[in-house]
Amino acid sequence: MDEAGFLAAYDPRDYPAVAVTVDVVALTIRDGRLSVLLVERGTSPFAGHRALPGGFVREETLEQAALRELAEETGLAGQVDASRAEGDLDRVHLEQLQTYGQPQRDPRMRVVSVAYLAFAPSLPEPTAGSDAARAFWVPVDEAKDLAFDHDEILADGLERARAKLEYTPLATAFTGPEFTIGELRQVYAAVWGEDLHAGNFHRKVLSVPGFVESTGATTARGGERGGPKAKLYRAGDARLLHPALLRPTREDRVR
């Protein structure tokens, strides 16, 4: 049967209904704590439960759907163009995390969700959109008992973020365009949930070729009153960190 004949004979009722959604693990650092964007669902299923922002994919690419959902929940709807976020979303790092398709993950029908991981140095106070009653930033260690399988998605997103800080310069996605080594260390400490030795961290960062580059400027922010000003850096051109900045091991913690 040729294609025209197949389409003429095709009846969608002969096939199970499947929908595609996107869910977004959006992370930022607020008040020194790694936080995730959550919504309170305003409709069934799981009305009143906390969940990751997300929704059904429309006539758009998966990435456009993820950016749209993120923009809606952060109050920046209308600032996402056909290819990339603009305005406050232009510094968002967005990457596909994983696909989730367990048969019973959504009680409505068979729903396959493509999860995305988003990092940003700062985003505004969220405003609920579409089917959400409200939206809010929550420290990741307080984000539990989420709707659907979002606890699993969040856990996977956190592990991806923590691992990527070891071998990529992704930490600079949580900072402003210019930052001090101390501010970069605060990013690592917040994401890893570990206090890091300032001197050791400073030496490790500067030993990695292309990780950061000096701006030639200094700043008094974050320094001791009356003490020397801290040097300002910007992200370098490295795509992978070699040597990697490994997370502290259990042995490191007890030394």
Rank of each mutant, 00 (worst) to 15 (best):
R105F: 04
L94F: 02
P126A: 06
R108N: 15
M109S: 12
H150Q: 10
R91H: 08
Q96D: 04
P107H: 12
V140A: 08
I153E: 14
D131Q: 12
R160H: 12
P126N: 04
L146P: 07
A115P: 01
D151M: 04
A132L: 03
A133D: 13
V111W: 01
D151C: 06
D156N: 11
G101H: 13
Q104S: 15
F119I: 01
Y116H: 11
F119W: 11
L89M: 01
R105A: 14
D156S: 11
R134P: 01
Q96E: 14
G129H: 08
R108S: 15
L123G: 05
D145A: 11
L89D: 02
E86G: 13
I153R: 13
E86R: 05
P103G: 06
T99Q: 14
L123N: 06
Y116G: 03
V112H: 07
V140C: 08
G129A: 15
V92S: 05
H150K: 03
F136R: 12
D145H: 10
L97D: 10
V138C: 15
Y100R: 10
S122Y: 04
R105C: 10
R105D: 14
P124Q: 01
V138L: 13
G101W: 07
A155L: 11
L94G: 02
V92C: 05
A128C: 03
I153L: 12
D90A: 07
L123K: 03
Y116P: 02
E125Y: 05
K144N: 14
A120K: 02
G101M: 10
Y100A: 09
H150W: 02
Q104V: 14
A133K: 14
Q98D: 14
V138F: 06
D88L: 11
E125G: 13
L97V: 05
D131I: 11
A143I: 10
S122H: 06
V114F: 06
A143V: 09
I153V: 15
V92Y: 00
V111F: 03
P139C: 07
W137T: 06
P124R: 02
T127M: 13
D149R: 10
K144S: 15
E95I: 11
Q104T: 15
P124G: 00
L117T: 06
T99L: 12
R84D: 01
S113Y: 10
D90I: 01
R105P: 01
F148T: 07
D151P: 00
P121Q: 07
H150I: 02
V112Y: 09
R134N: 10
P107Q: 12
Q102L: 11
R84H: 00
A128W: 03
S113D: 13
Q96M: 12
E159R: 15
L158G: 02
Y100N: 05
G87Y: 02
S113V: 15
F148M: 10
K144P: 09
E152I: 07
P103K: 00
D106R: 03
F148D: 09
G157N: 12
D149H: 07
D151I: 02
R160W: 11
D149F: 04
P107T: 08
D106I: 01
D106E: 08
G129C: 10
F136Y: 12
A147L: 09
V114G: 02
Q96I: 03
L94N: 00
P107E: 13
A128Q: 03
A133L: 14
F136P: 02
S130P: 00
V138N: 13
V111Y: 01
V140Q: 09
A135I: 04
H150T: 00
R110F: 04
R91S: 09
F148C: 08
D131P: 00
